[in-house]
Design a protein around this nucleic acid. Structure first.
Length: 512
RNA sequence: UCCUCAGUAGCUCAGUUGGUUAGAGCGGCGGACUGUUAAUCCGUAGGUCGUAGGUUCAAGUCCUACCUGGGGAGCCA
């Protein structure tokens, strides 16, 4: 062990400023590649990933033997000197000594492709891998940005209860539990409590877990997710939309500034995020329907025509990939390639096949989307594909407002000038990510609200406390709900919401 | 709840109109190679084909039910 007195314990993310210095790292092995007389060890320590190099003629026999035996995810202490790897323009560590903290059996997750089910079963370990690491850091940054945005604007974060005594919008989507012998439900929204808090503190936001017992198996749903719900006294729908816009712009810019490394690891295309600038298009529900149905153009572009064009491009891409696959298979079949080249081509073929599978799924979907968009029934809520068709025509998030009252919640305020509509708003993210925010100005008139509760056949008794908010100094107020994991998924550019939360809970997934 | 696709080695998959003893790549292990980045070479171990029935001389392959998972609908953030 050659641990000098001057060497310091450091984290990998601090290596950049320590070139030439002796240091000690503690972490886990992420890969090992060895050749005669030299071993490359990948190391991660939570703060980042780095390569360390063990050269036989520079370390003791024991150290070199240990380096040659290390396996994935063995925990180790590494002593060495920080040097610049000129080829990669990255810092690496020239190892002088190694200590094994713990070895173990073969690590289940290899550095190769795995299926979703396998990885989800290994979620507790999968979190260690680079993309998942980047995703969780992105999530953390977003959470911090959300707090910063609201705190800097005088909002208080206050928590609603998680056990609730009554079902706000029917019991079918709620998890029932036993609360000292009385049925209680896990909260599906903190909004009603948020309203009470807003009338006490002016501007508040809640930030907590939310539970929905919907048996959804889609890439946009979780049974347990985190929701941010600001609520503001004296805000109308317009101010609410202004706030949503400022909020999304703030968080997006903060992520671009603070998570460049993470976004690079996630291979995120930055253009759609860089486009997130004020103002967002604001489209009424009725106009949105016209756009979806292809009856109204946006900047001279027709939704159905654009989707048709996308479909043609997809088909062309598939044809190109298929040709590429054929070329590579032919090259392998000639038998003149080296084994390495064969492996490389096989690996490329696998990738192309996987890509084509995805593209074919899309090409199969688009005709149905077009059909459903063309015949969209005015007055109904949008489906996932309708959101995609609509947002396709814009380069940034779209706000759809003034919704038909019949398809929205009882507490939304009617638009006085358009009594069949409510002053609600949904924010739809681009790139097919869909709804990430739902908000509204709330009904502040006692009689009207009471009427709505009765219309929706909800138990008035349970809402007496809520009605008190309209009895004593009722004021116009508004708020919205943001699904954290949906936001993280979109920012990360990831296909599935389950990767946006450390331990997802969804239909069919309770462990680990 | 409904529609749809799938379950074969530790992982990712192939397996022809049902036909001998079930295959590959990766990973593991053993060995070779002094700068590797999922691309080197040689060798090696590894399987109750999701479960239970059925059809058949013969089932990984066909039929039925169930289980588990993927994608989607509904509902939503």
């Amino acid at each position: 062990m050659s641990s000098s007195e001057t060497e310091k314990y450091v984290y990998i993310d601090a290596l950049g400023s320590r070139e030439g210095q002796p240091i000690t790292l503690k972490g886990w092995v992420t890969f090992r590649r060895d050749s005669k007389g030299i071993v490359f060890l990948g190391l991660r320590d939570g703060s980042g990933f780095a390569q360390t190099v063990v050269t036989q003629d520079q370390v003791s026999e024991e150290t070199f033997a240990l380096a040659s035996e290390l396996a994935l995810e063995n925990s180790v202490v590494v002593h060495g000197v920080v040097v610049r790897n000129e080829r990669m323009n990255e810092m690496e560590v020239a190892v002088s000594g190694l200590e094994l903290i713990q070895a173990g059996p073969e690590y289940p997750i290899s550095r190769k492709a795995h299926g979703v089910e396998f990885l989800m079963d290994q979620r507790h370990l999968w979190l260690r891998s680079q993309k998942q690491w980047a995703m969780m850091r992105l999530r953390n940054r977003i959470v911090f940005a959300i707090h910063r945005f609201f705190q800097e604007r005088g909002f208080l974060q206050l928590d609603p209860p998680i056990f609730t005594g009554n079902a706000v919008e029917g019991t079918t989507t709620l998890f029932e539990t036993d609360f000292y012998g009385e049925p209680a439900y896990l909260s599906q929204s903190g909004q009603l409590y948020g309203e009470a808090l807003a009338l006490a503190h002016g501007k508040i936001y809640t930030f907590g877990p939310t539970f929905r017992a919907e048996k959804s198996k889609t890439r946009r749903h979780l049974s347990e997710f985190w929701m941010i719900e600001p609520e503001m006294a004296f805000y109308d729908l317009d101010r609410n939309m202004d706030l949503i816009e400022d909020f999304i712009v703030f968080v997006t810019q903060d992520v671009l500034e603070g998570c460049a490394k993470e976004l690079a690891i996630l291979e995120r295309n930055l253009a759609p995020l860089q486009n997130v600038q004020k103002p967002f298009p604001r489209v009424t529900y009725e106009d949105a329907v016209s756009i979806i149905r292809g009856e109204k153009e946006v900047d001279g572009r027709n939704s159905l025509a654009v989707m048709q064009q996308d479909l043609d491009e997809l088909k062309q891409q598939i044809a190109e990939n298929t040709a590429d696959i054929a070329r590579r298979e032919e090259a392998i079949a000639t038998g003149s390639l080296k084994k390495g080249e064969i492996n490389f081509n096989r690996s490329r073929i696998d990738q192309l096949i996987a890509t084509n599978k995805e593209l074919e799924e899309k090409t199969g979907n688009i005709p149905q989307w077009l059909e459903s968009a063309r015949n969209f029934p005015r007055g109904e809520d949008f489906g996932g594909s309708d959101e995609t068709v609509l947002t396709r025509l814009f380069d940034r998030p779209v706000m759809v407002y003034r919704w038909p009252a019949a398809i929205k919640a009882f507490y939304m305020k009617r638009d006085p000038e358009h009594p069949e509509y409510v002053k609600g708003v949904d924010l739809l993210a681009p790139e097919g990510y869909g709804e990430i925010v739902g908000g509204a100005e709330r009904e502040d008139n006692l009689d009207l609200l009471l009427h709505r509760i009765e219309e929706h056949k909800l138990p008035v008794e349970a809402f007496q406390w809520y009605l008190d908010l309209r009895r004593y100094g009722s004021v116009p107020h508004a708020g919205f709900g943001l699904g954290l994991e949906r936001l993280v998924t979109w920012m990360a550019g990831t296909r599935h919401i389950r990767e946006a939360i450390p331990f997802p809970r969804a239909y069919g997934r309770l462990r680990p």
